[in-house]
Design a protein around this nucleic acid. Structure first.
Lengths: 112, 112
DNA sequence: TCGTGGTTACAAAAAAGTCCGTAATTCACA
DNA sequence: TGTGAATTACGGACTTTTTTGTAACCACGA
């Protein structure tokens, strides 16, 4: 129920990007469109149920396009939409920030 | 124990930015340093336990600096670190992307 | 007694994972 | 010429793990 609509774009945006998988999936999808099983291989620790749920979430958010091909064995392809591709550099920038600011931040675990 | 270290900066980064509160707190802290109770007022729906936990998480990540002043009543101030300030425009960019790509995305709830 | 910035113990909810089933086709085997 | 196993992309029921929230408490000084 979370107060219906947040009106804050950042909050809405983080609602779909939050969590462990969305950015990871983006990371793998940015190379090229992938099939369900490709994504499973890319990330062996995600259960297929979660993978399927996360992909649906990204699809509903307009970040990923799902294309199912007729015939068996089933074949489904997931690709970034234009919006998804626009998002990629922003996520990369976050990654760069995280690395680049390690000196500026507490550095956390330096010796490990 | 989530595979210890992810080695992927994006994954590590999202670990601290994920969730409802981190970006919101950033949003309020970017105006000026705030006290614990200011942040409670800014966002009345966060419980003070969670607020305290989230602030600690941000502090450990080197995004927020906590300054406690001696004397009573207790006074503690939270401010963005330089790294935190560098992060702000990146988060804003995400918000812009979310708004700007509404036409590109599915648009979701257009009439509401 | 109130206000501040916490903490702890416990309850509730959300997220993630396991296990099993389904569809429709191809392929192996005998 | 069946029988059955494999494949792919899921769906549903259920359990476990993790995250959030609620409520109460503490310290101290005015």
């Amino acid at each position: 129920m979370k107060d219906v609509v947040s009106r804050c774009p950042i909050e809405e945006c983080m609602r779909v990007l939050s969590g462990r998988w969305p950015t990871l999936l983006l990371y793998y999808l940015k190379e090229r469109p992938k099939r369900f099983s490709d994504l499973q291989r890319d990330n062996p620790t995600v259960s297929h149920r979660i993978l399927s749920l996360e992909l649906r979430k990204l699809e509903e958010a307009g970040i990923v396009r799902r294309t199912a091909y007729e015939g068996y064995p089933l074949r489904v392809e997931y690709a970034l939409t234009p919006a998804g591709e626009q998002l990629v550099p922003l996520i990369d920038a976050l990654g760069d920030w995280w690395e680049g600011s390690e000196g500026v931040r507490g550095v956390a675990r330096a010796a490990e």
